[in-house]
Simulated scan of single mutants.
Amino acid sequence: MTADRRVLVTGGSSGLGAALVAAFLERGDRVLIADRQEPLQASAADYLRLDVTSEDDWAAALAWTTEHWGGLDVLVNNAGIASGGRIDVSSMEEWQRVIDINLLGVVRGCRTFVPGFKAQGSGHIVNTASLAGLVHPPGMSSYTAVKAGVVALSETLSYELDADGVLVTAVCPGFFHTNLASSIDSRDAAVGQIAARLIEKSPYTAEQIAAEVMKGIDEKAMVVVPDEAARMAVWAKTHERALYDQEQRSFAARIRAMSEGSEGRA
């Protein structure tokens, strides 16, 4: 088990990011929390303000790790927002925001630190995607599109950087208890309500997901699906496609009914 790694975690102040920070620290690693918000609780990790949409902030993160650590070993691109909505309800502004943060934020992180990883002949990129990157339910087109993009990017880079000694892992959890629901800013209220309920009802905690992610990192896995419910969904899509399609269409009907009911009450 490798320890004393130099680790940067975007979105590390709360949710899964904070749980991953704690897990790395427990291993004896040095950790930099790179987030727009300072950590909610005191931590042994260092903190640097970073907006993943800002090229200047990424340049500052590179400068910080170079000055204080002489480089980086693990980049965790975890920062992200929730989004959702039917294609004719969501605005283009919503699409542009989630693409800029959830996909291009990851791209910026990789572009910032890959040259250093290649120069030192080692490194590990961990990109937080989602189960939504592997299965694609209705009402979430912007979110599924960008998370599928993160999975695709991660697999591509895994092959591209293999000869340089750089590992890449995509993390694809299902719903778990987190503050992600608070970031939903969608014109499609029905989808937002359903997503919030699924997060609230999930039996999984961020700490449980982080523990499974750490196992995946240890195993050098290309894709980590850390919870049983998510693994079952992937299995159903692959092996029980007719049933899977039926469930997704039923989900779409539920969204439609909720929306029409809200409009009727209005």
Rank of each mutant, 00 (worst) to 15 (best):
T2F: 14
T2R: 15
D4I: 08
T10D: 04
T10K: 06
S13I: 03
L20E: 01
V21I: 02
V21E: 06
E26P: 01
R30K: 09
L32I: 11
R36G: 03
L40D: 14
A44L: 11
L48W: 00
L50K: 09
V52C: 04
T53Y: 01
T53K: 01
T53S: 04
S54N: 06
E55P: 00
D56A: 15
W58T: 06
W58L: 10
A60F: 08
W64N: 03
T66G: 15
T66A: 15
H68N: 14
G71M: 12
L72N: 04
V76F: 13
S91M: 12
M92K: 12
E94M: 12
W95M: 10
I101P: 07
G105T: 07
T112D: 11
P115V: 05
A119W: 09
Q120I: 03
S122R: 15
T128L: 14
A129V: 04
S130M: 07
A132Q: 08
L134F: 01
P138K: 06
G139D: 02
S142H: 13
Y143I: 07
A152D: 11
L153K: 00
L157R: 08
S158I: 08
G165A: 04
T169E: 03
A170W: 05
V171Q: 11
D185N: 14
S186P: 05
D188K: 06
D188P: 09
A190Y: 01
I194R: 12
R197I: 11
E200Y: 03
P203N: 05
Q208R: 02
A210F: 07
V213N: 01
I217E: 02
E219M: 11
E219D: 15
A221P: 04
A221N: 02
A221Y: 09
V223K: 00
D227G: 00
D227Y: 06
E228A: 14
M232S: 12
V234K: 02
K237T: 10
T238H: 10
R249P: 00
R249A: 14
R249L: 13
A252G: 10
A253N: 09
R256F: 12
M258D: 15
M258H: 14
G261Y: 06
G264Q: 13
